[in-house]
Design a protein around this nucleic acid. Structure first.
Lengths: 126, 126
DNA sequence: CATAGTGGTTTCCTTTTGTATACCGGTATC
DNA sequence: GATACCGGTATACAAAAGGAAACCACTATG
């Protein structure tokens, strides 16, 4: 009797289950962009201006060149950071948040807001 | 000559580097709460009402009982979902988003918003 | 008695993620 | 000539996350 009828408790009436999960794809995209052990710290570092490779590494204790290289590549692929090579000798390379990368700020702000109250709630024990 | 002076390009003038990274802790907390391959889908599922264990599992293809169990425990620990055992025979267990869990909605909304435009931008190729 | 459904746990395995360490070509410094 | 800085890469390994399958006690159905 519940053959083809849509269960409203499962999904909003105008959406199929697959449409629901499709809705989650953009959320996962946003999450992916910020995921990784060092990405937030790197983004924060670039928030305060252009930085060179070793400079970032020095600022973030424990960050190995391999990870820094990898995370910077991901930021570049997502067009959040840009890489500029200057043919000085030896070459110098500068990384910078793109204007697009700066659009992350309000989002990170929201994460910070929710995370702060959550942190208080959990640490408080109740 | 730049001995003890604070570099404004590294961190805002009123914050030390360690204070900066401390600022990131709440952001990481928020990210952690939503991380994990299945958590978003489970939260979405619970958004539409109380659900039983097997019911959630049936709704989300590929989700094994081990993972579901683990993710639900994490949601419980974070007070985002609650678990109710009814001593029917055999026992039935219902999971539900707490009112606190529902405070995630606007945050997920923001992630969705940013993620959508990002998805378009990256898929478009530029 | 066999089968299926309830809410899970256990064990073993693979994949992903991150760490540690050494190394590269080039230049500048001691 | 040895050392150190630059921007990384390569190799090997450890830890964490996730998947597959079997299993548990219990009940209800055929």
């Amino acid at each position: 009797m519940k053959e083809e009828t849509h269960d409203k408790r499962k999904c909003p009436s105008h959406l199929s289950t697959t449409e629901c999960t499709k809705m989650l794809l953009p959320v996962k995209d946003a999450l992916d962009v910020l995921s990784g052990k060092w990405k937030l710290q790197i983004i924060l570092s670039l928030t305060f201006g252009k930085k060179r490779f070793k400079q970032i590494q020095r600022e973030i204790p424990g960050l190995t060149p391999k990870m820094l290289s990898k995370e910077l590549k991901e930021l570049e692929i997502n067009q959040l950071a840009s890489r500029h090579v200057y043919d000085t000798l030896p070459v110098s390379v500068e990384y910078e948040l793109t204007t697009y990368g700066k659009t992350l700020k309000p989002l990170i702000g929201e994460l910070h807001k929710w995370g702060s109250t959550h942190r208080k709630r959990i640490i408080a024990g109740k």
